[in-house]
């Protein structure tokens, strides 16, 4: 059976589901960021697969590069926030950092 568009979409869907699971269940801020990276990767697979199988030009690849760039910025900012939270609360459990509620 030849590899077609649907195969790549299924891989993207499973990656998205696992990333969403990570974001939903983890209480560790770094793990949540890992889940976000999984979700962004699955979106990138879809971009590149669609551009490869529909138009054949590089529009989707350029979008994927922009997503990768934003993921790098997001990781840098997110991990800086995690470090700041760790300095204040001495833990990175996101349920500990809820003093804004009080």
């Amino acid at each position: 059976m030849a590899i077609g568009l649907a195969h790549y979409l299924v891989v993207g869907a499973v990656l998205f589901g696992l990333g969403l699971f990570t974001v939903l269940t983890r209480r560790n801020a770094i793990s949540i960021l890992m889940g976000v990276e999984l979700i962004l990767n699955s979106a990138n697979i879809n971009y590149v697969a669609f551009s490869h199988y529909s138009t054949g030009n590089v529009d989707g690849q350029i979008y994927a590069i922009f997503v990768i760039m934003l993921a790098a910025a997001e990781a840098a900012i997110g991990l800086a926030i995690v470090l700041a939270i760790f300095q204040i609360f001495h833990t990175i459990d996101v349920e500990a950092a809820e003093t804004l509620k009080d």
Partner: peptide
């Protein structure tokens, strides 16, 4: 997977930025 889809530059960027940058940062 990017290599399979004929996206050689994106595959290189993926290795450079994700593996070399984001993973090390994490």
């Amino acid at each position: 997977i990017y290599v399979f889809l004929g996206a050689d530059f994106v595959a290189g960027v993926q290795v450079l930025i994700y593996v070399g940058g984001i993973l090390v940062l994490i």
